[in-house]
Design a protein around this nucleic acid. Sequence first.
DNA 1: AAGCCTATTGGACCGGTGGACAGGGTGGGC
DNA 2: GCCCACCCTGTCCACCGGTCCAATAGGCTT
Lengths: 205, 205
Amino acid sequence: MTKHTFISSKGQLQARWKSAFPDAVVRTEPGGERPDVLWWARVPLNSAELSSAIAAVPGVPVVVLSPEPVQEDAMHAIALGARGYCHSHATPSMLQQVAVAVTHGGLWLGPELMSRVMGAASERLLGEQAPDVDPGLDLLTPRERAVALEVARGATNKEAARRLDITERTVKAHLGAAFEKLGVRDRLQLVLALKYVPVDVDHAA
Amino acid sequence: MTKHTFISSKGQLQARWKSAFPDAVVRTEPGGERPDVLWWARVPLNSAELSSAIAAVPGVPVVVLSPEPVQEDAMHAIALGARGYCHSHATPSMLQQVAVAVTHGGLWLGPELMSRVMGAASERLLGEQAPDVDPGLDLLTPRERAVALEVARGATNKEAARRLDITERTVKAHLGAAFEKLGVRDRLQLVLALKYVPVDVDHAA
DNA sequence: AAGCCTATTGGACCGGTGGACAGGGTGGGC
DNA sequence: GCCCACCCTGTCCACCGGTCCAATAGGCTT
């Protein structure tokens, strides 16, 4: 059975959510058992809280619910890695649709926002022809890249293995190869290398 | 039963697709019965053809399949309204995942592309607006902050200890406190949690 | 056919990491 | 004075992470 956890400041709307997902869990704080979908209904939207909540459950799609959807909030949520954004008063069947989409690797945004996001993304990526795209990623094989990206989202080797459907040993192999190609010594510096390009490690010196 | 139509120039890979969707229809030209998902496997990708094919079936999610996924092609497809982009040699189960996501209103892109698109969209739509600042760091005591910043630069516990002139044990103590305050489980997630803070850090002074 | 790259996995090793017990020392507020 | 927050240190231990030794298999180039 799919597990759903709702994070709500006031615990309201539980009835509606339980209607969509009868065995849903409603909490006021993140934590507890790892759900299949994490619904973020805290208002107002706090980037820091949302960010760490998302980081705390790598691999779990996070959907942000808002009582009055605002594009800016939605974009913040997306920027932080949320996989969905919709009205907190959405009908149960709508919520179920969203759940299905995100648990299958999709991004769910609602028609209007979706087209805006897609438009903006293509403007950004086609317009400037990827100037600051990590040269690092291009050095990696597709598999190494996939593993590196999982790790860069905060996943452990075990979690990355589960997400990519390979053994932990293989994750280590790809990671090791990525370390060597990028000239870093561990996963943390790999993340830094993928964020801002140069790693100014004067530490070891 | 969900109906799937594949548009392929050469009609190849039919076996693979039929394995995923036994009653799929493979065509060389768009048209015919209205499917639930339209899979576009024509190579090379032609924007005009794809555009009119998408326009011809409003409401039907279109997924572009490519034998060798390229970001630029993906962005063109997205810009034209495609709801998904993935490898044409994807496993049947993967295709099924994609199908489920897009038929439920989702956008399916694969981890790497997805994060790029999301990042690009938020950059474009949020502009240079600084996110609402200083969540994490202000929760920490000065010493915890110093340790966290060392770690965020890629230092090991031992290196941080040497730079701050304390024992490795103390570094662990501060780090552990920082983990708890920020609600993360390890140093990597701590870095991610601090990532969305303006890092002006000239702390070395 | 031979060679290379990629992807995958196994076993073993060992240092780094994080949590669970501990403390002791300082300074400020009530 | 007491309490409390902060800073610093210690030991023990389970687990994770990174690297070494391999091996098998498929695809691609020469």
